[in-house]
C-alpha cells in the first residue's frame, strides 16, 4: 500500500489548483445560493452551459466529474421517480395501466437477470441502468395476459416531468460544484481554508486553529490506520477468521477481533503522539507561526468578480422575471 487518495483530490496544476482554497469555498457557497434562486429549466440549462465552459477553461476532465457523480446516481434516480410519481399538477402527458401478472413478473425477472449479466461486461453502466428501467416499464405496461394479481394506473403529468427534470438538474450542478472543490483542493488546504474562514468564530469560543490541527492530524493518520486494519485482518484471517463468509454470529466475533486491536493500537498511538507533540513544545491554544500560509493572487480577484457577476445576474433574473 503505497498511498491512498484521501477524499477525491487528484494532483494537477490547472486554474482551479492555483486558486486559494478560501476563494473556492466562498465562491461555491455563493454559486450554490444562485443555483437555488433559479426557477426554470431554461435558466438551469444556461447555468449548466456556463459550468461546462468553466470546467473546460479549468481543464478539468468532464469524465472525472461524471465519475464523481456515480455514488449519488441512485439518489438522482429516486429523486426523478418521486417527482414524477407524486406530482399531479398540469396536463396529463400519458396514462397507462401497469399489469402485474404471472407472465409480466417472470419476464421482469428475466430482464433483471439479463441486466445483471450485461453489467459484468458492459462499461456504460448508467446507460444500461436506464435501458433496464425502460424495459421494466414496457414490460409491465404491455404484457397484459390475464389474470393480474395487481394493477395500477401510472399517470404522468406535465408538471411532474418538469419538476423532476428541474430538481435533478439542480442537484447535478450542486454536486458538480462540490466535486470541483474536492477534486482540486488538497484536504490539508481545505482544512486550512476553513480554519481561516472560521477564525472570527473565536469570539464565541470556537478555536478554529485547534480544530484544523485535529483535522489535519486525522488526515495524516488515515493511511496509517488503513494499513494497520489490513495487517490486523491478515493476522486474524491466519487464525481462521474469514471476513467474507460465515454466519452472522461468527461474523460479529470476527469484527470484534478486528476492532479491539484497532482501538487498542489507536489508544497507544494517541498517548505516544501526545508525548511527541508536547516534547516539541506544542501547547494547545497557544500562538504558533505557520509554515503553510494562504495567499490571494490576481486569479482570486477574477474568480471573486466572476462569482459576484453570477450572483448579481441571478438576483437580477429573479427580480425581473
Amino acid at each position: 500500500m503505497n498511498s491512498i487518495i484521501i477524499g477525491q483530490y487528484i494532483p494537477g496544476n490547472g486554474f482551479f489548483y492555483k486558486l486559494d482554497p478560501r476563494t473556492k469555498i466562498i465562491a461555491i457557497f455563493f454559486l450554490m445560493i444562485s443555483v437555488f434562486m433559479l426557477q426554470t429549466i431554461v435558466q438551469l440549462l444556461i447555468a449548466i452551459g456556463i459550468a461546462v465552459v468553466i470546467l473546460l477553461i479549468g481543464r478539468i476532465s468532464l469524465f472525472k466529474v461524471v465519475r464523481g457523480l456515480k455514488p449519488i446516481f441512485i439518489l438522482l434516480v429516486f429523486t426523478f421517480i418521486f417527482q414524477i410519481a407524486l406530482n399531479t399538477e398540469g396536463t396529463v402527458l400519458s396514462t397507462a395501466t401497469m399489469h402485474f401478472n404471472l407472465y409480466s413478473i417472470i419476464s421482469a425477472v428475466l430482464i433483471f437477470v439479463l441486466w445483471r449479466i450485461l453489467l459484468r461486461f458492459g462499461k456504460f453502466k448508467i446507460l444500461l441502468f436506464l435501458a433496464f428501467a425502460f424495459a421494466l416499464y414496457f414490460n409491465f405496461r404491455y404484457i397484459t395476459f390475464q389474470p393480474d394479481f395487481y394493477f395500477f394506473q401510472l399517470t404522468i403529468y406535465e408538471k411532474g416531468v418538469e419538476m423532476s427534470v428541474f430538481v435533478v438538474l439542480r442537484l447535478l450542478i450542486i454536486i458538480t460544484l462540490t466535486t470541483v472543490l474536492t477534486l482540486t483542493t488538497k484536504p490539508t488546504d481545505l482544512t486550512q481554508g476553513l480554519e481561516r474562514l472560521m477564525h472570527p468564530l473565536k469570539k464565541i469560543g470556537f478555536n478554529s486553529e485547534d480544530f484544523a490541527l485535529i483535522i489535519s492530524i486525522s488526515l495524516r493518520y488515515i493511511p496509517t490506520i488503513f494499513d494497520e486494519a489490513q495487517k490486523i485482518m491478515a493476522a486474524q484471517a491466519s487464525r481462521g477468521a474469514d471476513f467474507s463468509e460465515g454466519k452472522l454470529k461468527d461474523k460479529l466475533k470476527q469484527i470484534i477481533s478486528l476492532l479491539v486491536p484497532m482501538f487498542i493500537i489507536a489508544f497507544m498511538r494517541s498517548e505516544e503522539l501526545a508525548d511527541a507533540m508536547e516534547s516539541r513544545n506544542f501547547v494547545p491554544g497557544e500562538k504558533r507561526t505557520r509554515i503553510n500560509i494562504l495567499r490571494f493572487s490576481i486569479i482570486d480577484i477574477y474568480t471573486g468578480l466572476f462569482t459576484l457577476a453570477c450572483f448579481a445576474g441571478t438576483i437580477l433574473v429573479k427580480v425581473m422575471l
Partner: peptide
C-alpha cells in the same frame, strides 16, 4: 512543527 510552536518566523523556518 516544533518551530511553529516556538513561533519562528516563516522565512526563517
Amino acid at each position: 512543527f516544533g518551530m511553529e510552536n516556538l513561533c519562528v518566523p516563516r522565512e526563517e523556518m
